[in-house]
């Protein structure tokens, strides 16, 4: 399934009978925040798929600590390397996870961390290369109530 952020938002808005006004407002705010962070990081440049690979579980075993990692395909030379990678959890009240800066001395552009996910959402990894080009990968991570499988 490829849930876009728009669909995620609609999903939140659609559960009319069960959603509160407060949580809808939070979702709208978080979405604006993500747009702002992406615009700042990319300098308004269009991101393309490829180069960066984000690894995340399809379903989180524990939403409080979800292991994620990324690698970027790059020779990491002085004139062709990864400058930085930004991670966003698009469905969290505060979407910013962190930004990792690299230099040619880093050798490779890769990192892993654990993040908290409030609910099912997309996690986005965006790489800025030394020439200013932008690459992106996203994964939907489902956060479930659990149980009943078998």
């Amino acid at each position: 399934m490829n849930v876009t952020r728009r669909q995620t938002f609609m999903l939140g808005a659609g559960a009319v009978a069960f959603a509160t006004l407060g949580s809808q407002a939070t979702i709208a705010f978080a979405s604006e925040e993500s747009d702002k962070l992406i615009a700042e990081f990319s300098g308004g440049k269009e991101a393309t798929a490829g180069k960066i690979k984000l690894k995340a579980p399809e379903i989180a075993e524990n939403g409080n600590t979800v292991p994620i990692s990324f690698t970027v395909d790059s020779p990491m030379t002085a004139d062709n390397h990864v400058a930085s990678v930004m991670l966003l959890a698009l469905g969290n009240p505060g979407p910013a996870v962190g930004t990792f800066n690299f230099t040619p001395m880093s050798g490779e552009a890769a990192a892993s961390t654990r993040i908290r996910l409030a609910k099912t959402q997309e996690v986005l990894a965006m790489a800025k290369m030394s020439d200013g080009s932008i690459f992106m990968d996203k994964k939907t991570v489902k956060v479930t109530i659990g149980g009943c499988g078998g």
Partner: peptide, 16 residues
């Protein structure tokens, strides 16, 4: 639970 069963992407299904 229903999404564990009927998510269109099987990688999000749990199998019960």
């Amino acid at each position: 639970v229903c999404d564990n069963l009927f998510n269109k992407d099987p990688f999000y299904q749990q199998g019960g």
